[in-house]
Every structure is written in structure tokens, then in C-alpha cells.
Design a protein around this nucleic acid. Structure first.
Lengths: 271, 271
DNA sequence: CCGGATTTGGAATATATGTTCCATTTTGCT
DNA sequence: AGCAAAATGGAACATATATTCCAAATCCGG
């Protein structure tokens, strides 16, 4: 019957499936075959659906789950559901917890942030629309001057982009750096604006985007995936969903996108 | 409230989400934002899980589904389960896919930088000496004022740390921000300096460290692993080896360490 | 072809999950 | 400040789904 340990990864699951299915009675073999061909459906289907697909009774499918080493279908399904969301247990709350627990040692926090950053990076590939990225590169590369705005928590990103563009000889101007100086009038037709803002969105940034849009200047926005005002303003949206808690945001994914964008603009321009 | 037709595709769903979420009360807005950032989870999560993720009650999330035009969560979930097709490609496949795009396209570069960042993060835990990190936290937390210096490519990191410390009410001062203004005299006994610099090290930063060390002010340095002048100056070294890609350094690992450090200092101080 | 062991189908049951309702709180208005 | 309308939380309820159980069917070695 079912051996001790249940598979803990999709890979293990598939190995076990092979092992097990050499000597299986008719109905259970049907289950094994159907599962092998439709592994991914497990995450979103009910036992009844899987059973029907395999052409067996739910109870037969149930037995199949147990032979695979799980206690039942639910446990088996959990494996696939978790692997689907790329497993990012809620880091925000986990970090909050850490704070409450008095577990403040530097190394411990570092480990948590590394994990959170890794998750954010994986997520980055999902949340950024490749087409939007191409568009953004096109818009920025063909601008005669790139204006960059990012305040508060986003200032770090803005300033890094400004640095990178400068290094690549792309004409760029960082706004909001010098003592809250407004430089709206420096933005002229033929230019483009790169706005960086995350919830809670700073009003100054939103205002600038609006003003600039009214003048038909194209806007690229580096922002979060949440429904935010920028979406309504006709900007090219590059969405990053980053783990953040309280005042903090592990900017790793954002920075990564920022550099990719800058580099792409730089190379596009010089060719 | 809910208008007639429910969305029949993910695209329609997203449009509706935007329409709807302009005027939404607090809790429902939370739902909308969480859903926008985690659309793919709907297929494999229960209302309870979604509600928890959004930080609301299940009943609130239920209302959200109805506002979106569905009869309830089950109906909304069906939409995503059906469009789940063969499951989204996992991280590795996604990366490969992006890589296959044109040589210098934005998505291609993004894939490369994500890979570089991921590698850097993995190194980070190895390259940072836990003891040094603890020491650094101690030094910064017990300083009456934390001075931060980081120029050129390191300025982004410096400004982010300054922002984070400020948010946590740790007295901090960012040097070099306002028009190359020197503020050496602001550094007094009892303070500490946090210097951020990577090869090629900027002379101004090195000079400042030297000056300050002469006055017995402790220095924490966020720098690369290479043998560098700072090691000779009796600073507490936090080494980050960032994987370079082309001319640019993905700052992901550095930022990650920066945040962990800031958070640790902030919490240490407040206890 | 017989008898024991194995496998199967389907109904009965237990559990998890979705959904609704209403008392309480918050918001917005005059 | 006082009121009405809207929003919210949480418990009660309904439904869907997983799981178990056992009698009937099937298989297999003599």
C-alpha cells in the first residue's frame, strides 16, 4: 500500500507516479494515465472532475491518491496549488511577525529579506508585460530628453536610473532632487516622462504626470500592480509587485527592472 | 449595484476592475488592489485565503465579487480556472522564453538582469559575515546621529537608507545630496558613518572615511568583497559581491542588505 | 468451476467552503 | 452635533466537495 512519505514537489510526484504505475489494477491505471497526461489540472479541478476525466468513480481516484502517498485528494491538490503560485507565503505578514517576535537579529532579517527579494524577482517575470516593456523602451529611446520623477521611497530608483542614463549618454533630467524645485517647464514636446511611484502614490508625481499628459508628452510608469490612478492616464505601465511592509519595500525587483529598462534604452539609442 | 454582465474573459475582468475601483470604499479597495496584484491566485485559492491576503473579512471579499459582476466567488473563480489552460510556465521556462527574444530587446535584457540579481542574492548570504552585520547594527543603533555617504552609483542605496532610517525615526543625515556640499563638520563624536562605495571607489567617500576615522568616529562600510582601501581604515565591512552584467551592476543584493540593515537598526533602537 | 482475495461502484457521511444576514460601526451631510 | 446612508465584521446557514464504507463484481490459482 502507500509507502511512508508523500511527494513534496512536482518532481517527486512524477517519479512516484512512474514507480507506482507499473503494477496497478485497471481502474487505478486509468487514473495514473490520466494524471500523467493532465498533471496541471489537479490544481484547479475537483476529484469528481478528475475521476470523470479518467473514466472512473471518485472513490477510485481517491484510492489512487492514497497509493501516491497522500492522505487524500485535498493533500495532493495542495502540492500543485502551492507550486502554482510559485509559493510566496505572505512575506509581508511574516516580516511583521518577525518584528513582533523580537527576532531582530541582523542576520535573521537579512535572510528573510533575501527570501522576499527572490520571490519578488520571480514575480517580476510574471507581472511585467513584455509588450509594455518594448513600448516603454521605444518611447524613452526616441525622446529628445527623458525626465525622471520619483519621490520618497521611489527616489532611490529614480536617482539610479538618472545615473545609468547619464552614463550611457542618454539625455536625462532628474526631477525633485534639488530642494523641491519644480521644473515642469523644462518638459517640452518631444520629451518623455518616466514616473516611478508606489502606493501610497505621492501626489506630486501624479500631478506631474497629469500635467505632462495634457501636453501630449508620453509617459512611462514604473509602478505596482494595484489599480492605481496612473492606469487611467494613458501611461505605459510597467508593473512590479514587490513585498512591502510598513515603510519598507524590498526594492530588489524594482531596481532590476529599472536597470534593464535603462540599459535597453541606452543600447537602442546608440544603434 | 453590480451591472448586468459578468466579465467573460480575463481581459474583460481587468478592464472591469479598473472601471470599478475608482470609487470604492476602503475594504473593497483593498480587495481590488490585492486582486490586481495577485490575479493568478484566484484560480487556486479559497475566498478565505484571498480575503486574508487582502486583509479583509470573507464577506467583504464576497461583496467585491458581486460588484465585479459575478454572483459570487465561485462564479468568479470559474473564469480563472477555465483560462488556466496548461498552467503558466514556471520561472525557468519564462526566463528561457524571454531570453529567446531579440538580442537587445527589453525583455531579453530583463531576463538577464533577473538572472544576475538572483545569483547575487544567493551570494549575499555567503559573503556577508554575520558577526560583522551584528556589529554594524550595534554601531549604528548606538550612534546619536547616523551619517550616510554614497556617491554616483551608490547614491541610490545611500538615499534609500536615509529614507528608511528617517521613517523609523532614527536620526540620519545624507551627505553629498545637496549640490556637492561638504558637511564634514556635522560629524561629531558619538556619531557613526555609514559609507557605501564600490569599485571604482569614489575618492570623496574614501576621504570622508579617513577624516572621520581620525576623529575616532566608527565607520560601517557597505562595499564589495575585493581588497579595498576601506579594509585598512578599521571600518566594519559588509561585503556584497554583485554579479555584473555588461557595464551595469544590478544593485538588488546591495539594496537587500541595505534594507535589512536599516530595519535591524530601527528595531534595535526602538527597544 | 469453486472459493478466497482483490477490486470496484455507488450511496452515506463528514468536512470544508461559499454565501447570506443582520447588528454594529463608520462615513458623509446639513 | 445629529441624523441617515453606507460599509463592515462576524456568526449562522447552505452548498459543494472530499472521504469512507460496504455490498457486489471481478479476478485468479487450484
Amino acid at each position: 500500500m502507500a509507502e511512508a512519505g508523500a511527494p513534496t514537489s512536482v518532481k517527486e510526484f512524477e517519479e512516484r507516479l512512474l514507480d507506482v504505475s507499473v503494477a496497478l489494477p485497471k481502474r487505478l491505471k486509468q487514473c495514473a494515465d490520466y494524471v500523467a497526461a493532465n498533471t496541471d489540472r489537479i490544481a484547479v479541478s475537483t476529484v469528481a472532475e478528475m475521476a470523470e476525466g479518467a473514466g472512473v468513480q471518485p472513490s477510485a481516484f481517491m484510492r489512487f491518491c492514497q497509493i501516491m502517498g497522500f492522505s487524500g485528494y485535498s493533500e495532493m491538490q495542495r502540492l500543485f496549488r502551492e507550486s502554482y503560485v510559485g509559493g510566496w507565503p505572505d512575506y509581508a505578514t511574516r516580516l511583521d511577525h518577525l518584528r513582533d517576535m523580537g527576532e531582530h537579529s541582523g542576520p535573521r532579517l537579512l535572510a528573510e529579506f533575501v527570501e522576499a527579494s527572490r520571490a519578488s524577482l520571480e514575480n517580476l517575470l510574471k507581472s511585467v508585460d513584455p509588450q509594455a516593456l518594448e513600448d516603454a523602451v521605444e518611447v524613452l529611446a526616441s525622446a529628445s530628453l527623458v525626465h525622471i520623477i520619483g519621490l520618497r521611497r521611489s527616489f532611490a530608483v529614480a536617482s539610479y536610473i538618472a545615473y545609468a542614463l547619464e552614463k550611457m549618454r542618454v539625455p536625462a533630467m532628474l526631477h525633485g532632487a534639488a530642494g523641491r524645485l519644480e521644473s515642469v517647464n523644462a518638459i517640452r514636446p518631444g520629451d518623455a516622462l518616466l514616473a516611478i511611484t508606489f502606493s501610497p502614490y505621492s501626489q506630486e508625481t501624479l500631478d506631474l504626470v497629469e500635467t505632462v499628459r495634457a501636453r501630449e508628452v508620453p509617459v512611462v510608469a514604473l509602478t505596482d500592480a494595484a489599480v492605481n490612478p496612473l492606469r487611467k492616464m494613458g501611461a505605459t505601465i510597467l508593473a512590479v509587485s514587490e513585498v512591502d511592509f510598513g515603510a519598507f519595500r524590498s526594492l530588489s525587483a524594482t531596481l532590476c527592472l529599472a536597470i534593464a529598462l535603462s540599459t535597453a534604452v541606452g543600447t537602442r539609442r546608440s544603434t
